[in-house]
Design a protein around this nucleic acid. Sequence first.
DNA 1: TGAAGATCGTGAATCGTTTCAAGCTACGCT
DNA 2: AGCGTAGCTTGAAACGATTCACGATCTTCA
Lengths: 342, 342
Amino acid sequence: MPQTSIREVARRAGVSVGTVSNVLNRPDLVAEATRDRVRAAIRELGFVRNESARRLRQGPAAQPEPPAETPARAPAYGVLVEDLANPYASDVARGAERALNKAGRDVLWLSSDHDPAKERRGLDLLAAQRAAGVLVIPVGMDDADIARLRAAGMAVVLLDHARPGVCSARVDHVAGGAVAADRLLALGRHRLAFVSGRPEPRPVVDRREGAARTLAGAQAGPLPLFTMDALTPTAGQAAARRLLALPEVPDGVFCANDLLAIGLTNELVRLGVRVPDDIAVIGYDDIELAASAAVPLTTVRQPRRELGRAAAELALAETAEGAAHQHRQLILTPELIVRDSA
Amino acid sequence: MPQTSIREVARRAGVSVGTVSNVLNRPDLVAEATRDRVRAAIRELGFVRNESARRLRQGPAAQPEPPAETPARAPAYGVLVEDLANPYASDVARGAERALNKAGRDVLWLSSDHDPAKERRGLDLLAAQRAAGVLVIPVGMDDADIARLRAAGMAVVLLDHARPGVCSARVDHVAGGAVAADRLLALGRHRLAFVSGRPEPRPVVDRREGAARTLAGAQAGPLPLFTMDALTPTAGQAAARRLLALPEVPDGVFCANDLLAIGLTNELVRLGVRVPDDIAVIGYDDIELAASAAVPLTTVRQPRRELGRAAAELALAETAEGAAHQHRQLILTPELIVRDSA
DNA sequence: TGAAGATCGTGAATCGTTTCAAGCTACGCT
DNA sequence: AGCGTAGCTTGAAACGATTCACGATCTTCA
């Protein structure tokens, strides 16, 4: 396939390439008759602008967006999440996308599937494409990765993680863990358990630590850790069976996320355990399903949309300010949502 | 920011640009000492290849992937889904991604949010970037859109929809609706209802039609339609209340998807209705949550991963075969998964 | 010693678009 | 008639990487 170029459009319309480009980018500079002829040629030939050439020519500075035919566009932002199937991640990313779209920017999503190698590949892809920036829930990035992105002129914003010298937006998970623990204590629960997924990421560690510290402060018991193989409802079911098999069954459970908590609660109920009477369950995230679960879930809400929006704004600011940009670490506060499960 | 180019790397390493390019793409052609010098320069300068220039030069033919430094990559495929928060869509897309990754291709996700304008913008973005192809759950595409994509040299595969002259992969939703209806009839249910989301997409219409036809064939009653404002658990809750308010409460409900069915079932149970004894509920999709729901959901399974994989293979074939490619419409068969809810 | 390879490097041409100084017309004004 | 101006259009020079025919050196062997 020979890929129709601006040159052929020009020939067909009987004008120069410069004129075609003008029609595409500054139609007001072109006489109406000419404009129409060019537009017709574009349609007839099925011409689609080659963005690679455009970007190559334009250099890194690309402007927002003048009115245009085949829409001239600023480079897109990438959103790289750990797991597209996780409602927490996709909600954050959607919040970010909305804000970016509002600013006229396109968004590409990539997923690392918790695999550092895939994460790196995705980052390199964005860097090579000279994306405007990337918002990333990191799973294994190091400073060299960040340096490479910066070298490609990209803005970098970390989600749910912090690192000096890089913009980031996250919630205070230690505080989140603390409010969960407070709630369980207030309900008079003392045989507690923390259920989480396997390769403990920092945010989960923080939640546990926040809870554990609160318990310690209240002279309350320890917070044994139950590690499942993922943060999914299926893992939650397994966790329920594991807890019930314990010599001393807990009366309060704090789950690392809502999916886990929902699976766990459902399985408990199915096995005849009353929630919250026999066992109180607290989740984390407040995903949509938490409210409509069989036992509406008490949980620690993360302001996910806002998190995404805030991250998007940091990225846009970094892009706009260039070298003058001051990196900022945003920390939002999570909030306990009391429903039925605890 | 001046964006370090291959030229500066060359200068720093004391070689020509051609040699740097060779180090990048065919390192075996370069003497070891030179290679090391160039690699060092690349590292020191934080050089990142400009993919725009590469693609511009390479033209549409881009090859798979020789061993390389800064990985040279074939153009990516786009996956454009209607709604990233929908587990059906993300599972299909993940199946596709896995297959494409296995073939050494990168994948970018875009979401149309059910908005035809946003869909078009995403397609145009991919076309302008000269992506290798796109797998799309369409929400408003027309033939002109497809022509534009083709003109940009892209492979196009429709997911969950069919259209003459375009590759597609989907399940037979009429059959899916039929097995659901059969199940309800087998359970002796006759006051049935169909619950769905608002702007009825074709696949949902098909499900309903399959069910309605089966009922008609069995001389069984009509299948009244209840339209909610989305296919979400929250909408399912609302649907439950609406059904219970009916003068004649149904004893069997077929939901357009699992999220709806889960929300509906949970709300019914909470309101003291027994599922399936009082009301049997059948969902559609068999998402992960269906199995671990409070009342494990009887549902019509779509082989989502396979669907994605099949679509990916169609796309790869189209890319490989070029003009010789024969467009194919794949139709897979859904399967009833009996659990507790019906 | 000298010729034929083998091994490495070079540098100019190229991809498709944008940009911009310069050119061309037609028109109005003095 | 002469000049200035406004309105359009042109054509060539970038942008950064890849490619490839061609040189330059070095080995090897008669």
